[in-house]
Simulated assay, not measured.
Amino acid sequence: MEPQDTTLTTTRLRLDRLVPADAPGLFAYRGDDAVARYQGWRPVDEAEAARFIDEQSRLAFHTPDSWAQLAIRDRSTGELLGDLGVHFPADKQSPIEFGISLRPDRRGKGYAREAMSTVLDLAFNEWGYRRTVGSVDPRNVASIALLESLGYRREAHHVEAYFFRGEWVDDVIYAMLDREWRSTATR
C-alpha cells in the first residue's frame, strides 16, 4: 500500500499536512535556538516558513526522493505541537528516514514517541519498507533516547562527518529493520 495524504490519529495526536495558518507557529519553534541546533532547516522569518508550507502543499506526500512534512497536532484542539518529516527514498530497497521537531514547551510528554510509533507502523506494515535509518548528532541526547526507546540500534559513528553551521560535527547512524520493529513487544 502506498502512502496517502490522509490524516493519521493516535490517542492524543493528529498528524496531517501543514497549512498556511501554521506559519507563525512553525516559525516560532523552528526558529528557536534550542530546536534549531540540530536541524538542517531553520526559517529566517515567518515568510520563509510560509513558503516552506506552500512548497510542501504542492508536493505529493509519497514523492520518491523527497521529504514530506506532517504537522503534529493536539488531537482535541488542533494546536500545532511540532512536525515530523518523512524522507521517502527513490526506491523501496533504500531505507526510509524520519526527522522530528517539537515545540520546547511540548517536549518530555511522549508526543515524539507517539508520533514516530504511528509512522513506523505504517512504514513497515502498510508502506512496505524493510529498513529505517536515523542520522543524529551525538550531542542530541534527546533524539538518541527517542530512537533507542523505539528499538533503533546504533550502527555507526562517523567522526567529523560533515561541516554544519561553522563546525565539523560527528554523525551517529541508527537503524531498524521491519522484523525488529515487529518483534518489539513494547513500544
Rank of each mutant, 00 (worst) to 15 (best):
A36R: 06
R37S: 02
Y38A: 01
Q39S: 13
Q39F: 11
G40P: 12
W41E: 01
W41H: 00
R42F: 03
P43G: 06
V44C: 09
V44W: 06
A47R: 09
E48Y: 06
E48D: 10
A50Q: 13
R51A: 15
R51M: 13
R51K: 15
F52R: 13
F52T: 12
F52A: 01
I53V: 03
I53Q: 08
E55D: 15
Q56R: 05
S57H: 01
S57L: 09
S57F: 07
S57C: 00
R58H: 14
F61K: 09
H62E: 15
H62F: 14
T63A: 15
T63M: 07
D65H: 04
A68G: 14
A68R: 14
Q69S: 10
Q69P: 06
L70Q: 05
L70C: 04
L70V: 02
A71W: 09
R73Q: 07
R75D: 06
R75I: 05
S76P: 00
S76K: 11
S76A: 14
S76L: 15
G78Q: 12
E79P: 07
L80F: 11
L81C: 08
G82C: 06
L84V: 11
V86S: 00
V86E: 07
H87P: 00
P89N: 01
P89L: 08
A90F: 00
A90N: 07
K92A: 13
K92C: 04
Q93M: 09
Q93I: 00
Q93E: 10
S94V: 05
S94W: 03
S94E: 13
P95C: 09
P95W: 08
I96M: 07
I96W: 05
E97A: 06
E97M: 05
F98A: 05
G99P: 03
I100R: 10
I100Y: 13
S101D: 10
S101W: 03
R103N: 02
P104V: 02
P104M: 05
D105L: 04
D105W: 02
R106Y: 02
R106Q: 13
R107D: 03
G108Y: 01
G108T: 06
K109L: 12
Y111P: 01
Y111F: 15
Y111W: 11
A112F: 11
R113D: 04
E114P: 13
E114C: 09
A115H: 02
M116R: 09
T118D: 04
T118F: 08
T118Y: 00
L120P: 05
D121K: 08
L122W: 13
L122H: 14
L122T: 06
A123H: 04
N125H: 11
N125K: 14
